[in-house]
Write a protein that binds this DNA or RNA. Structure first.
Length: 536
RNA sequence: GGCAGGGUAGCUCAGCUGGUGAGAGCACACGAUUCAUAAUCGUGGGGUCGCGGGUUCAAGUCCCGCCCCUGCUACCA
């Protein structure tokens, strides 16, 4: 219907001020599962991940490390790319905001927005921290009273969480009462600078209309309701340039300014597919922007408004996933995730087990809690006992009773269960409910295990008159394993490719081919235990 | 403070527009089985369904009040 249009799926680009942690990984793993599922359905997919490398924090990190900001960004970017390779993330491209192709796209966006008369020079004023060389918002500030309390408690300023409510206070009151937690001894300055502004206020009605006509634009629903509330409250124009910050895309025609984060970072989704060259239409509009729920506003308000202004088609959906918490602590991208070392977690049981665990444990449309104990339990019960053991016992029996070759066999009671599991699986995966998709596969494993008990193939094998029954038992079980290999491939690409090869297949089969699957004649081999039980 | 969502077995959660004895998975106990990774299958114990009122023949399921948790409340990404 859409010709050879690719399915285009993106993740948020990560900010280059620190190494990757589990919050970054959760998002990429989930997005990768969505991508691999779509490929399994036969879609041609473009999957892009990237880095946001401009801005103050990158500059500061680079200075602290004594390197140029570009060198700093290069280092961080390579760490991220290494991690994505280690986790089996199948992105086709890695866009970086310091690349020339991105600068070009940003410039064109600005030119178009300018042509629409949506950009103007205005004054931005607010509390400015001289130490940080940056304006600060309420969310980034603490009150003097809070600092004093912390000092009394002996915890110091480091542990103080930001976040104040200063609406209604005069500039003088704000200066007197609020401090930057990074530079608590310095007074903030009420300052102003001339910036470029985007007439976001023009787009409120059109955005409300967008939500009404295309509710799927913001998913899941809980995120959509939040966005609607913001829109109903009315929009103000936003400043989109900075004059005191050098590290960014120079503002076209006004090189004293650099492009501030919104137009810069969000435009990556276009620059990665070649915008403004006409070929970008092969990929654009994006089918799904996968993002963390904390940045839905930027993707569901700023971004579509910018695209409307520039007369570029809007993405189809924005998916705002939730967060992983570890022992109650948020481990999102912006919180550091210091309590869980991602590299250690990958090494513990391998990338595939981690991918499975996260997506099985944390709903893709909400938050979830993980722990080391939980990982143990989930791995042992789902992967080692249920699935791994099933693979082992089925292939063992085929080797023992049929020389390792799948016999031709009639349908059994298990086959309708395979079909039913596939229906549930597709329903869940099409709705991006990855957790439920994984559950459907494991439930099929449980059904297959129960089926083995019911049929007792070891008894069928003792009576030559039951040879046909035994054939049917083994053939059905083989079909179940092939189905599971495909269903779990988006979650565990390496392990399921391994499983497929043990089943005599080159790779997990496309979903379409599972309906009328015939494996007779395939030679199976058991191999090493697929998911070893944790050693005690 | 306002808005939104949530508080159901030890843990993670299903329970849609009110109605047969309140469920699943994991964990635990017992039984069965031997193809298999001390794995598997079956059975069972265990819950004042946040608290207090109310509507109704009947309420986790509706209404009111309260307590607790989470998210959002716009220019950090």
């Amino acid at each position: 219907m859409r010709g050879d249009k690719y399915t285009y799926l993106t993740t948020a680009i990560d900010y280059a001020n620190g190494p990757p942690h589990i919050g970054h990984a959760f998002e990429k793993i989930g997005a990768d599962a969505m991508v691999r599922y779509r490929r399994l359905k036969g879609e041609q997919v473009r999957f892009v991940i990237g880095m946001d490398e401009h801005g103050l924090k990158v500059l500061q990190s680079a200075e602290a490390a004594g390197v140029t900001p570009q060198a700093w960004a290069d280092g961080i970017a390579s760490k991220f790319e290494e991690m994505w390779r280690a986790l089996g993330i199948s992105n086709d491209d890695f866009i970086r905001t310091t690349q020339p192709r991105h600068h070009r796209a940003v410039e064109v966006m600005i030119e178009r927005m300018q042509a629409a008369d949506d950009l103007y020079r205005g004054k931005y004023e607010g509390l400015y921290c001289v130490g940080c060389e940056a304006f600060k918002t309420d969310a980034e500030l603490v009150s003097v009273a809070t600092l004093e309390a912390a000092a009394e408690a002996g915890t110091g300023a480091d542990g103080v969480a930001g976040g104040v409510h200063s609406e209604g206070l005069t500039a003088e009151e704000r200066v007197a009462r609020l401090r930057c937690p990074i530079h608590p001894s310095r007074q903030l300055v009420w300052s102003q600078e001339e910036n470029w502004f985007f007439r976001l206020s023009r787009y409120g009605e059109r955005l409300l209309k967008l939500l009404a006509e295309r509710p799927e634009f913001v998913q899941p629903e809980s995120r959509r309701n939040e966005i609607r509330r913001v829109l109903e409250g009315g929009l103000e124009d936003i400043s989109v340039s900075r004059s005191r910050l050098g590290w960014g895309v120079p503002w076209p025609g006004d090189p004293e300014h650099t492009v501030y984060v919104w137009i810069d970072a969000l435009t990556n989704y276009l620059s990665a597919v070649g915008f403004p060259d006409p070929g970008y239409g092969q990929f654009w509009p994006a089918d799904v922007h996968v993002i963390g729920k904390d940045i839905t506003r930027f993707h569901c308000i700023y971004w579509p408004a910018m695209l409307m202004s520039a007369e570029v088609e809007l993405p189809r959906t924005v998916w705002g996933h939730g967060f992983v918490t570890f022992g109650g602590a948020k481990v999102s991208k912006s919180e550091g995730g210091a309590r869980v070392d991602l590299t250690e977690l990958v090494e513990l049981r391998g990338a595939d087990a981690l991918r499975y665990f996260l997506l099985r444990e944390v709903p893709w449309n909400g938050d979830g809690e993980i722990s080391a104990q939980r990982y143990d339990e989930r791995y042992t019960s789902d992967l080692a006992n249920n699935l791994g053991n099933l693979v082992n016992r089925v292939i063992s029996m085929i080797e023992r009773y049929r020389e390792g070759v799948v016999p031709p066999g009639a349908q059994t009671a298990l086959d309708p269960e395979i079909a039913a599991a596939l229906v549930r699986y597709r329903g869940a995966m099409d709705a991006n409910l990855l957790q439920q998709g994984a559950a459907a596969a494991i439930e099929l494993g449980q059904a297959a295990n129960a089926f083995v008990g019911d049929r007792a193939p070891w008894n069928q094998a003792k009576d030559p008159a039951l040879a046909g029954e035994l054939d049917a038992t083994l053939a059905s079980l083989a079909r179940a394993l092939a189905a599971i290999a495909s269903m779990l491939f988006p979650f565990m690409p390496a392990k399921m490719t391994d499983l497929a090869s043990r089943l005599g297949l080159e790779a997990p089969l496309p979903l379409e081919s599972l309906a009328a699957l015939e494996l007779a004649g395939r030679r199976m081999h058991k191999g090493e235990v697929l998911f070893p039980r944790p050693q005690e």
